[in-house]
Amino acid sequence: MSELAHPVQAPAAPLAFRTMPDVLGGRYCIECLLGAGGMGTVYRARDLLAQQFGDPQPYVALKVLSEAYDQSPDASALLFNEYALMRHLHHPNVLRHFSFDVDTAHQRVFVVMELLRGPTLDRLLCEHPLGLTWPALRDIALPLLEAVVHAHGRGVLHGDIKPSNVLLSDDGVRLFDFGLGRAEAGTLDGLAHVSRNRVNAWTPGYAAPEILEGAALTRAADIYALGCVLYELASGKHPFNRMPATHARPKRPKNLPRHVWRGVRKALAPDPGKRGISAAQLHEALATKPGFWG
């Protein structure tokens, strides 16, 4: 998570922070709140064991369940599933998860993750209301697409790709928060089958129309979300004003090459059957020089 995400200090911290113990699992000293999402809250913490052994950077990020979900068995299973999905991935553009732990004394489950410096993509977009230049866009989009290509290649679906889940760290782009993700059939089949519909944490502006209607998560849904993010990178605006897709046809952003626009336009199709493009093909389009396509 981002160390520059305006950590919240007492007394302005919300209830979730005030009710957190000072130390989780007898090892992780909570220092500040980094951010909160649909079902998870993330803190910066100091690993006391690593510090004891002289680690000069003993800091990690801890993800715990938000107050609204910390008593839900489904939410606890979802948090473990997220850790299992992340453990299945090994890519430089995917945020690393170190361990899943239970603090029995405080009845808390939590995930230990790497702590990185840098803003999330939504903050960068706020600073560029007209979108990014083509070189700047490619520098972000290519590693993001590489992360999704890797995840899909390993049978893992993200389920919640959006600017606030993309970290622009000092060490490069990182995709994180697979909390609504799932493994495809044949991948991690031993994981508990839990209902994500009961959690109801989909982001309407980036969730594919079929997901909001109750359909199962598929690669096509991730592709739709990628299309929204790529369009927003190019134009500074969401293609559908952060509402579920309709029959409206967004226009090509001026700084998006035509050969790339053809792929992005497919990704934005409201009908999943018409999203005839993969993350790998989107990556290929962005990586290819326009002249090759004519």
Results as ranks from 00 to 15, higher is better:
residue 155 G to N: 07
residue 41 T to H: 13
residue 125 L to P: 01
residue 198 R to A: 14
residue 95 L to V: 04
residue 5 A to C: 15
residue 278 S to E: 06
residue 52 Q to S: 07
residue 194 V to D: 10
residue 203 T to V: 08
residue 22 D to T: 11
residue 21 P to Y: 10
residue 154 R to A: 08
residue 71 Q to N: 10
residue 165 N to S: 07
residue 46 R to G: 02
residue 11 P to N: 09
residue 1 M to R: 13
residue 221 A to Y: 02
residue 20 M to A: 08
residue 187 T to S: 12
residue 129 P to D: 03
residue 43 Y to G: 04
residue 31 E to D: 10
residue 17 F to V: 00
residue 116 L to G: 02
residue 245 A to V: 04
residue 272 P to D: 10
residue 175 L to K: 01
residue 62 L to I: 06
residue 242 R to W: 08
residue 60 V to F: 12
residue 108 R to N: 07
residue 292 F to N: 13
residue 217 L to G: 04
residue 113 M to I: 01
residue 13 A to R: 11
residue 139 D to M: 15
residue 192 A to Q: 09
residue 198 R to F: 15
residue 283 H to A: 13
residue 92 P to A: 04
residue 9 Q to T: 00
residue 51 Q to D: 10
residue 210 E to W: 01
residue 37 G to H: 04
residue 90 H to E: 13
residue 57 Q to V: 09
residue 73 P to K: 14
residue 64 V to G: 06
residue 157 L to I: 03
residue 163 P to F: 00
residue 29 C to N: 14
residue 294 G to V: 10
residue 22 D to E: 15
residue 30 I to P: 03
residue 229 V to S: 05
residue 237 K to Y: 10
residue 98 F to I: 00
residue 56 P to R: 05
residue 152 H to K: 08
residue 127 E to D: 15
residue 50 A to Y: 14
residue 257 P to C: 06
residue 203 T to M: 12
residue 175 L to P: 04
residue 272 P to I: 12
residue 150 H to Y: 06
residue 210 E to M: 08
residue 280 A to F: 12
residue 52 Q to E: 10
residue 239 P to M: 08
residue 106 H to A: 12
residue 84 A to M: 15
residue 52 Q to H: 08
residue 216 A to S: 15
residue 179 G to M: 10
residue 157 L to T: 00
residue 138 R to K: 07
residue 161 I to A: 05
residue 194 V to Y: 05
residue 243 M to P: 09
residue 116 L to W: 08
